[in-house]
């Protein structure tokens, strides 16, 4: 074998392994998305019918809106709170390590556990949140926080924000702490205020990190399943049914394997398109 071909053959096992883990399941799902395959019924080829059913399904449309609304809101809130938290911690001279360690705690809790914790906190009569809201004159609806469409959605947002804001804060904090101090000091010597230092020096420098953190969080939020499963089961009605929960029901509860395969493809494609649009307008546009 000549020396030019050798490197390609050396990396062949890795490529095969990669394909087995990534491309094969996608091809598997793609193939089954063209079948009518429901456990208990005869399997048959139906062309694009599953895709048509997915796109025209009111459940899918609702789940898409719920997911995008949820992802957009939580990412915005978490970025805002995470940035403020990171700026505050970066400004503290002592105890940064301890605060960072405390910040890691919510992230280390499994989402399903976070869901159980908040479900108990929201519980009518016995839940602390329910009680505190009543005390401050904002009584939750009679059917409870998770029993009402609007407040159930808010309840999920609060759970997610509690768990993932520290993640954003830590990423931004790391970026803030790695900024070159000479530029900041030079600006201060030139008479720049704290706000001006933040607005014109720190923010542009940490922008790529913020964009990256936002993208990572969006991808996670887009796939939210655990807290929905534990707290609301997609209800009341379908008010909190996310794409992942919808996919779980179709694939693993009802075993509509063909339909669920098409749904997987559509959900993945939407994610890829959204992320690429985001990358085009943020990270790549800035040349970072």
């Amino acid at each position: 074998m000549n020396s030019q071909k050798l490197p390609y053959f050396l990396i062949l096992p890795s490529i095969i392994f990669l394909f087995m883990l990534t491309i094969y399941p996608m091809l598997f799902a793609l193939y089954h998305s063209f079948l009518y395959w429901m456990i208990g019924s005869p399997v048959r080829f139906i062309g694009l019918e599953n895709y048509i059913n997915v796109i025209s399904s009111s459940l899918f449309q609702n789940a898409l809106i719920v997911t995008l609304k949820f992802s957009g809101i939580v990412v915005a809130i978490e970025l805002f709170l995470g940035l403020i938290t990171a700026l505050i911690i970066a400004g503290i001279r002592r105890g940064q390590g301890i605060i960072s360690a405390i910040l890691v705690m919510p992230i280390s809790v499994a989402p399903v556990v976070a869901g159980i914790i908040f479900r108990n906190l929201y519980m009518k009569e016995t839940g602390v949140v329910d009680y505190l809201l009543t005390v401050i004159g904002l009584p939750p609806p009679p059917e409870g926080i998770l029993g009402n469409s609007n407040t159930a959605f808010l309840g999920l947002i609060v759970t997610d924000v509690w768990e993932w804001t520290p993640f954003i804060a830590l990423i931004i904090l790391a970026s803030l702490l790695s900024l070159p101090s000479d530029i900041i000091e030079a600006a201060k010597v030139d008479g720049a205020s704290d706000w001006q230092v933040f607005r014109y020096i720190k923010l542009p420098l940490i922008k790529p990190t913020i964009f990256l953190a936002a993208m990572l969080r969006f991808m996670q939020a887009y796939n939210t399943f655990d807290i929905v499963y534990v707290e609301t089961r997609g209800g009341p009605g379908i008010a909190t049914q996310t794409l992942s929960y919808h996919l779980f029901l179709e694939g693993l509860a009802y075993f509509h394997l063909g339909y669920a395969s098409a749904l997987t493809v559509v959900v993945s494609l939407i994610a890829v398109v959204l992320i690429n649009i985001y990358l085009m307008f943020t990270i790549f546009k800035g040349g970072s």
Binding site: M38, I39, G40, S41, L59, N148, S149, G235, P236, G237, I238, A239, L249, A253, Y254, F255, H256
Partner: peptide
């Protein structure tokens, strides 16, 4: 019947929506 679970999913959704006053 083999497709009971699918039918139960449909039924459960609309019963719950009626209970929530959405329908």
């Amino acid at each position: 019947i083999p497709i009971y679970f699918t039918l139960e999913g449909i039924l459960g959704r609309y019963l719950n929506e009626a209970m929530a006053g959405k329908i």
